[in-house]
Write a protein that binds this DNA or RNA. Structure first.
Lengths: 328, 328
DNA sequence: AGAACTTGTGAAAACGTTTTCATTCGGCAC
DNA sequence: GTGCCGAATGAAAACGTTTTCACAAGTTCT
C-alpha cells in the first residue's frame, strides 16, 4: 500500500542502505544518487519520520512552549524561532500553556516523550522556580522569563531598566501619583515591578502596586475598580500588552481622558498601540532578536551540554507617544 | 541510559507485552496493572512516541496549517482546534505558511512524512485550486477558505452575505462612493468581493475594487495611494483585520477623519477594533465555532473516509460602530 | 610491489514500541 | 469427567528506517 524505502531500493536496483545514504549524507556515487532520486520520484516515496527518528535517535525537533498565544509578543517571537529552526532543518512543535502550570507539566512531559532535541520555554513563575538544571531531560532555554539563577540558559529583557525608564519619563512629565499594574504569574512582571519600585523610590514617590492575571479581561476589571477610587492614580504603568489593553478599556469605561485624566505607559509595541488616540507610550521589545538569540543559545547548548549557563539580557526601546504627555 | 519498556517490564516482573497492555487498553488484571504503574513511577519511564507511532501506525496527531499566525483570526481558531484535539487525546502540529504556496507545499509534504491522522488547512487560492480530492494523502478539512467544489470538506463564513451586509449598511447610511480593498490570495477575499459587487449593483452603485497582499503594510501602502486621489471613495470595505488596520493607518496618514471624511467597515472583530475611535464597524466571525466545526468534520471524515464531501457555512455577525456612522 | 587507506556497496542488526500468535488456567455446560 | 470458552499472559514478529559490519575495488604511500 504505502511505499517504503524497500520499494525505492527495488526500483533503483540497490539496497535499502544505499537509498538511505543517497537521501541523507553518505558516500554514494553520483550515478547511484541519480538513480535513487529518480526512483523516489517514480514511486512517490515519503520517508516515515517516526521510523527515522526512532532509529537515528534524533528528532530534529525543537519544542516551543509559550504562555499565551493570544499575546502578539509570543507570536512574534515564535516566528523568529520558526525561521531559525527551519533554516537549520529542524521542525518546531508550538504549544500554548495559557499560564497554567498543569498544562506546562503536560507539555513538558510531551516533550520528553517526543524526545525533542531541545526546548524554548516561557514558564510561569511557579514552574520556573521548581525547575532545577537537572529536572528537564533535554536542553532548555528560557525566554522572556528566567528561573532559578544558573539553572537554565535564558534570554530576557532588561525589565528593571525598562520599567524604570517609564517611571523616569512619567516623573519628568510631572506625574507623581504613578500606579503600577503587574502580571501575577511571571518573573518578568516581578522584575518590572521591582524596577518600577526602585525608580519610584529614587524619585521619592510612593509606589502604588496591584497584581492581576496577565490577560485583558482581568486587567480591565482590576483597573476599572482602581480607577473608581477617589485616590486613583494619575498615571498607570502596565506590565504587558494585554494588561495595557485592559487598562485602556478601563479608562474608557470610567470616562477618563488620556492623558488629561490618566496617563498610560506599558510594554510591547503592538500594532494597535499607535492606533488608539493619542498613541500609547510603550517599551518595544526586540522580539525577533529574542527569538534568534534563544535559538542560538539552544543550538550552542546542544553542541556543548556542559558549558556554563548563560543569560542574554536585551534592552527595550522606549516609544514615547501621546498617552504620557503632560497637558499644559 | 534511557529507560525503556523492557526496564519497566523487568521492574514489574512481567513481559513487555503486558506493560504495553497495562498502559494502553488491553485485558490486564488489576493487580498487574498496579504493579506496572508502580514500576513506571519507580523507573520514571516515558514512552517513546516515535516507536509507538511507528508500530501502531497511528500518529494521533493533526496538522493545522494556517496562512498567517499574526492574524488574530487564525490564532483564535487554532486555540479552538487545539482544545478539541487535546480533549480527544490528539496532538497538534501548528504551521504558518505566510500565504506562500512554496511553504504550503513544504508543510503538506511534512504532514505526509509525519503520517498525521488528519489536517486542517487554510490554503491560498493558488494551492486550493490545484488540490483535487486525491492529491492529499490524509483526511483534510479546509478552513476559512474553500477549494474546488466537492473536493474537500470545509468550514467557511458566508462571505457573500457578510460583505453584502456591510454594503447594505453603508448604503443605508447614505454613502454611495463605497470602495472595496480585498486580499489577493484567498478564495475568501474573492467571495467577499463578489458579495460586495453584487450588493453594489443591487444598490445601483458603481463598484470600486482594488486587490492587495493580505497584510497591514501592503494594505496601508495601497490605501494611502488610493485615498490620495481626487476621486477617492468616501467609504471603504476591507476584507480582513490586517487590511483594515492598514486602511486605518492610511486614513491617518492622509489626515482623513473617520467617519466624516472616510467611513470604514471590515472583517474580524479583533480586540483593538473597538479601541480606535470612533470604533470600527466589522463582521465578527464565530472563530471558536469555526475551529470546533472543523475538528468535528475532520473526525467524522477520519471515521468514514468515503462519506460525501461536506461544507459548513457559518454566518458572521455585523458589529456596528462609529466608523460607519453618517454625519449630519 | 605490497601495505595501508579510502570509497562504495549490501546484509543484517538495531531502534522501542505494539500486535499477533500461542499457551495456560479457571469456570461453565454437557 | 470431558470439552469448550474467555481472560490473562509471554515469546516473538513486525513497524520502516539508519547504522554497523564486512568486503571488494581502487588509490596512495613506502
Amino acid at each position: 500500500m504505502t511505499v517504503g524505502i524497500r520499494d525505492v531500493a527495488r526500483a533503483a536496483g540497490v539496497s535499502t542502505a544505499t537509498v538511505s545514504r543517497a537521501l541523507g549524507r553518505g558516500p554514494v556515487s553520483d550515478a547511484v544518487r541519480e538513480q535513487v532520486e529518480a526512483a523516489v520520484r517514480a514511486t512517490g516515496y515519503r520517508p516515515n519520520l517516526s521510523a527515522r527518528r526512532l532509529r537515528s535517535k534524533s528528532a530534529q525537533t525543537i519544542g516551543l512552549i509559550v504562555a499565551d498565544i493570544r499575546n502578539p509578543f509570543f507570536t512574534a517571537v515564535s516566528r523568529a524561532v520558526e525561521d531559525a529552526a527551519y533554516a537549520a532543518g529542524m521542525r518546531v512543535i508550538l504549544c500554548n500553556t495559557d499560564e497554567d502550570p498543569a498544562r506546562e507539566a503536560l507539555y513538558l512531559r510531551l516533550m520528553e516523550e517526543e524526545r525533542v532535541t531541545g526546548v524554548i520555554f516561557a514558564p510561569t513563575k511557579a514552574t520556573a522556580d521548581a525547575l532545577t538544571s537537572e529536572s528537564l531531560g533535554f536542553p532548555t532555554v528560557f525566554i522572556d522569563r528566567s528561573g532559578l539563577p544558573g539553572a537554565h540558559d535564558s534570554v530576557v529583557l532588561d525589565n528593571v531598566a525598562a520599567a524604570a525608564a517609564l517611571v523616569d519619563h512619567l516623573a519628568a512629565q510631572g506625574f507623581s501619583r504613578i500606579g503600577g499594574l503587574f502580571g501575577s504569574t511571571s518573573s518578568t512582571a516581578r522584575e518590572r515591578q521591582a524596577g518600577y519600585e526602585a525608580a519610584m523610590s529614587r524619585h521619592r514617590l510612593a509606589p502604588l502596586v496591584r497584581s492581576v492575571a496577565p490577560n485583558a479581561a482581568a486587567a480591565e476589571a482590576e483597573a476599572t475598580r482602581w480607577l473608581g477610587q477617589s485616590d486613583r492614580p494619575e498615571a498607570l504603568i502596565l506590565s504587558n500588552g494585554l494588561i495595557l489593553m485592559g487598562a485602556v478599556r478601563a479608562a474608557r469605561a470610567r470616562g477618563l481622558a488620556v492623558p488629561q485624566d490618566l496617563a498610560l505607559a506599558g510594554f510591547d509595541n503592538e500594532p494597535w498601540t499607535d492606533l488608539v488616540e493619542p498613541g500609547l507610550t510603550v517599551i518595544e521589545q526586540p522580539v525577533a532578536e529574542i527569538g534568534a538569540q534563544a535559538m542560538r543559545l539552544l543550538f550552542e547548548r546542544i553542541e556543548s551540554p556542559d558549558q556554563p549557563v548563560r543569560k542574554v539580557v536585551l534592552s527595550g526601546r522606549a516609544v514615547l507617544r501621546g498617552s504620557t504627555r503632560r497637558q499644559a
